[in-house]
Design a protein around this nucleic acid. Structure first.
Lengths: 238, 238
DNA sequence: TTTCCAATAAAGGTATATAATTAGGGGATA
DNA sequence: TATCCCCTAATTATATACCTTTATTGGAAA
């Protein structure tokens, strides 16, 4: 029902009925989510028939979802055995952080060049919220707003592939994220680092933004590795 | 038939019958190869039945291979339409180089820290060959040995994920590689840059290695973007 | 009791069958 | 002649069936 009067549209509406998602996508997202929040634990076996039954679909979309999880590093395949939730060693975590430090420095530098005023304001609004949640010790909301903060920041780099790679790397260790920010004092420290970073970016100080981003990641790495090393010894985290 | 006499094995043979590869892997590699060397051209439609027939397999492994190609950015999916070989814009290429510059700098710096003497010697042996092929203007062999050179270099970073990401990014634009090294004078230039880089690494000069690697990638980018800009205008390369 | 072998079940790998959606063409009508 | 609609063919999406390999378990023999 469009009403009786035909109105001339200003623009052609980009009619995207892209709401449609294949089952494999839903399964993929569902499984990834479960792996990230440790509902599916490292080392756990993923059996196709069982997953298919649980989700009420056939094996085909489940298999296709697993293929994608495999490439993103969330599961490992053992030929003729099946898929297992990927374990991750301390070395793996260190490796990921090493890459993230470089890429987040790159992204922050690019953001300092390319960010718009609107985005900058948005970032600052986020900082206010981060502040609130930090005061309130609201860990859950903090993690959420923190993720959103970084999303805006990285998008400002105007490099979609970069955003995608960083996002993937962050997800890889987000399985242990709670451990990181839960360390006493880290929340306030991180907030300060974020503030400095935004300041450098708003000053369009590329080198400083890079430097701060890199150090920010390195700090997060040290905290996390420390606390993990205490929890577990060496070996794979399973 | 193991023969009549049982011989005591010196060592436990790491009995990996890992020679086995699922069909989906073979199909995956085959398709990726075809896309990289432009047998399958950007924008071309990939039809499952046809590919399956051509390769003498069923649709299932073909579909699974396509799922992986999708995640690696080699194909784009249009829901209910199928898969198309991914087109790539000049912006895309610039984005990829932007990331590569940062990551190859990182890898080279790490290599300067962690490379072994054996690996260094191996690199220098490769340089000799690069020299030969450059003199002989043997483009094909040059591309091959160049790839191998970089593989050794990046492995020396002792960061497998880093190696994997860089490899993927290189493959993404390898589809246009011929254009890059074919530019007159670039081959010699690249050789010189490689020599300097190896020198910096053998001196364990981390900062210099990073700097040289970054500039090397940036140079390659400029050459390639220039020559592509002449060939095509704007728009997707199809 | 322990070890080895065989039978069997269970799971992944592959192929095929069915459903659903889309593109395209041809004909009818204005 | 042009436009609109319906029908058909083709293709993807999903489900199911079949094949192959591996792990397990129970029993027989040493």
């Amino acid at each position: 029902m469009r009403g009786g009067v035909v109105v001339l549209e200003k623009k052609m509406i980009p009619v995207k009925l892209d709401n449609y998602k294949p089952l494999r996508e839903l399964v993929f997202e569902s499984l990834r989510e479960a792996i990230i929040n440790a509902t599916l634990k490292p080392g756990e076996r993923l059996m196709e028939v069982q997953l298919a039954e649980d989700m009420g679909v056939s094996r085909t979309p489940v298999r296709e979802a697993i293929r994608k999880l495999e490439l993103e590093g969330f599961v490992v395949m053992v030929p003729r055995k099946g898929a297992y939730v990927a374990g991750i060693s301390l070395k793996d975590i260190a490796d990921v952080y090493e890459i993230r430090a470089a890429l987040e420095a790159l992204a922050s530098g690019l953001a300092a060049e390319r960010i718009t005023e609107e985005e900058l304001e948005d970032l600052e609004r986020h900082l206010v919220k981060v502040n609130e949640y930090t005061e309130a010790q609201n860990l859950h909301s903090l993690v959420e707003i923190d993720t959103s903060f970084h999303d805006i920041l990285y998008k400002a780099s105007r490099n979609e592939r970069l955003v995608q790679i960083i996002s993937n790397l962050r997800e890889q260790i987000m399985r242990f994220r709670t451990t990181s920010l839960a360390v006493p004092g880290r929340m306030k420290e991180a907030l300060l680092e974020h503030k400095e970073l935004v300041e450098a970016i708003s000053e369009r100080n590329i080198a400083k933004a890079q430097e701060l981003a890199q150090r920010h990641v390195e700090n997060a790495e040290n905290i996390m590795l420390d606390s993990l090393q205490k929890q577990f010894g060496e070996g794979k985290l399973k």
